[in-house]
Design a protein around this nucleic acid. Sequence first.
DNA 1: GGTGCCGGGGA
DNA 2: TCCCCGGCACC
Length: 391
Amino acid sequence: MAAVEPRGRPSPADTRPARGPGDEEGLIYMQCCGQEDVEVRESQSQVSAYLPAATPLTCTGSSNSFRSPESVEMDEIMAAMVLTTLSCSPMVHSPPQKDLLPASSLSGDMECGGGELSDSGSSGYWSWDHGSVSPAPSLSVTEMDGSLGQAPDEGLHMEMDSGGSEARRYKGSGKGAYRCLWPGCGKVLNSRVGMKRHIQLHHLGVGSEHSQQEEDFYYTEVSSEEEPAPPSPAPTMSSSPWASCGSSSGASTPGPQASASAYSSPLSQSAPSSVWQIHTEHLYQACAPIQVTVSSGSPSSCCWTPSSEAQHKPQVLASRSRSVSVGEQWLQRNSAPTRSHTISASPSRNHCTFRKGRGEAKKCRKVYGVERRDQWCTACRWKKACQRFPD
DNA sequence: GGTGCCGGGGA
DNA sequence: TCCCCGGCACC
């Protein structure tokens, strides 16, 4: 890994020079894994045939021809990490990615790859989100699999030697089971094209041109007799910004099976709405904004992607406790189901300095009057934005 | 003028 | 960190 030079995103013309010294990766992989798969040994000649012209990733991909599916998966992941390390800015941080990887598969080598599977260095948010999205919802994949014929951009692979080698790599087996190696995905499709498309769409991103080359390395061929695909970790919530909100250990560990219930964010799972209600009243006390999303009906037009640190705030705040006034308890009972949405519209001091228009909602001052100021919510008492009766 | 609340500051 | 308040925008 260390031999890989930091570089920009590999373009089709860029991948080839990455070989040479970078070939150590492939060699290392071959050495570290002593297992040899008898079935694939015959493909050694094929591998060596295209190795000289292959990209580093092709090398890693070729390594899977020598090994058991388990190690193949590991190497594929590591190869993906290497690739993305090449193509990623150091601005994007690895911890979440490290957790995204299967905990049992990688131990020591994980960090050397920087743990980066992000799509591009252009945007840290995108990269972060991308990693979170990685266990993408797979509902559309299967149908996509069936509907896909030939990938329209298949020719792109052919212009490189890796593309041709890839064709050889998968030519031998007609079983057509391909497993997505994207950390936490494990999607199995019986169509290589479908798998490629799955990776493109769900992991690499549709519009990213580099995905045309990289997609090959995020899936592996599995025999139909092999173990079924590992359960797809809950992908649904990951599209939510909250997916990254938990600590690095909790945010990216594979969740339960995708289901409708999985749509709740980690926060909503961990914190009951009443707790939310409580600490919502103290959101103004948090120096960092929690999140600003454009909720329907809200005049707020500011979209701000919170930093991961800021996203920790709610849970931190949730741990705080104070006595709940009667009015607050009433509010909890009456508006708890909907408050979880209004929470995210809490004003952001840093980025959204506009002053909200005066809503029609009654505030504590009007509800209780000045003479009952002690029944105001804390925010109103402190002349902050009312949290009890948000607009 | 009343109200809501941002921003700043004191304890 | 909690709490208060000046000041401003909105109605």
